[in-house]
């Protein structure tokens, strides 16, 4: 018997064995029913690809497809943003409307502690991050030729490299130490970590919560805002971290086109700092890349949280960061839900 035939048999056998061992159709993460691929009726850009969801749960997601407030990404025109005037963050976008089913999902994850939902929450942030980046590129682009390219690509999907080039880092809203100890995790940090690992954007612990607030409901809007301002502070090493980030980004932007190692989610990179592959030179995606001085370029950060309610949390956090940075810094909010 020839070796080739043996090999064929072995392969056949092992394939059969693998088929036996392979799990059946995946179960929906939320309800356990059989998972289904996204249907044609779902918007092109807003769906969950990797995490198993059944049709019912898929269709229950109230994606925010069109916004009516440039500042906070709300689906309706909002008086909050008009009244507040200048916020410490540039603008903010959210993935979904915070309706009853999303409330239930968040409760399962955050309060009941079903941490297996984590990758789902992080993945739901991806479409909105895609769109935010495209929007940012469009707004910042001055050369009409490149603007056309951007508009064309953004209509489909931006490569991960473009997203990585656009954002210098990801910060997240902290929870108090007592909460952290009780819950065992900070949902904003976990989402930020997964997102950072996916796109190769560094995730930085920059903020701390200075005290433990009671539940927000039952306070007037203004007292809530006032509370928030004093609630967050920059972490002790935040200034140093920002400076280091600024340096490494400037070097990456201005240095010669060095060969880049293929990016893969390595286990040893909790705050993934490696860059994505060379499918498009990241620097080329940087709209303000041509500017001469590294010092003058603002550091562009994402600030991740689970829910955007009044914007005061994001505002408080962004304010704390801007206070410690003597160089320009732009902060954009990215939240899972918009209340």
């Amino acid at each position: 018997m020839s070796a080739g035939r043996w090999r064929g048999w072995l392969e056949q056998g092992s394939n059969r064995l693998l088929a036996l061992l392979a799990p059946g159709p995946a179960a929906c993460l939320l309800c356990g029913r059989q998972a289904a691929a996204p249907g044609p009726q779902e918007a092109q850009q807003s769906h969950v690809r990797r995490q198993p969801l059944c049709r019912g749960c898929r269709e229950a997601i109230p994606w925010i497809e069109a916004i009516n407030c440039y500042c906070c990404g709300r689906t309706i025109r909002c008086p909050d943003c008009v009244r507040r005037g200048g916020a410490a963050f540039v603008w903010s976008r959210s993935a979904v409307r915070y309706d009853a089913s999303m409330r239930a999902w968040l409760a399962a994850y955050k309060y009941r502690g079903e941490e297996r939902l984590e990758p789902l929450f992080a993945e739901m942030l991806e479409p909105v991050l895609q769109r935010m980046t495209a929007e940012l590129l469009r707004r910042l682009e001055t050369s009409p030729k490149r603007a056309a390219v951007v508009a064309d690509v953004a209509g489909r999907q931006l490569p991960a490299a473009a997203i990585a080039a656009c954002w210098d880092g990801i910060a997240y809203v902290p929870v108090s130490t007592a909460r952290l100890r009780e819950r065992g995790f900070n949902q904003a940090q976990r989402m930020a970590a997964l997102l950072g690992r996916r796109y190769g954007i560094p995730v930085l612990p920059l903020l701390v919560r200075t005290r433990h607030t009671l539940k927000q409901s039952g306070k007037s809007r203004w007292s809530r805002l006032r509370d928030m301002q004093a609630l967050f502070d920059a972490a002790p090493e935040a200034g140093e971290r920002l400076a280091r980030l600024r340096q490494s980004r400037a070097k990456a932007r201005q240095g010669p086109d060095s060969p880049r190692t293929a990016w893969r989610p390595g286990p040893d990179a909790p705050h993934a700092a490696r860059r994505p592959g060379p499918d498009a030179s990241p620097a080329a995606w940087r709209p303000d890349a041509g500017e001469p001085s590294a010092k003058g370029q603002p550091l562009r950060l994402l600030l991740v949280d689970d829910i955007y309610t009044t914007g005061s949390t994001l505002d408080g956090c962004a304010d704390a960061l801007r206070r410690i940075s003597d160089l320009p810094i732009e902060i954009y909010g990215l939240t899972w839900a918009r209340a």
Binding site: E115, R116, L180, R181, E182, R183, G184, F185, N186
Partner: peptide, 8 residues
Amino acid sequence: LRRTRCAA
């Protein structure tokens, strides 16, 4: 059982 990085 599921293992996660636990802040507690």
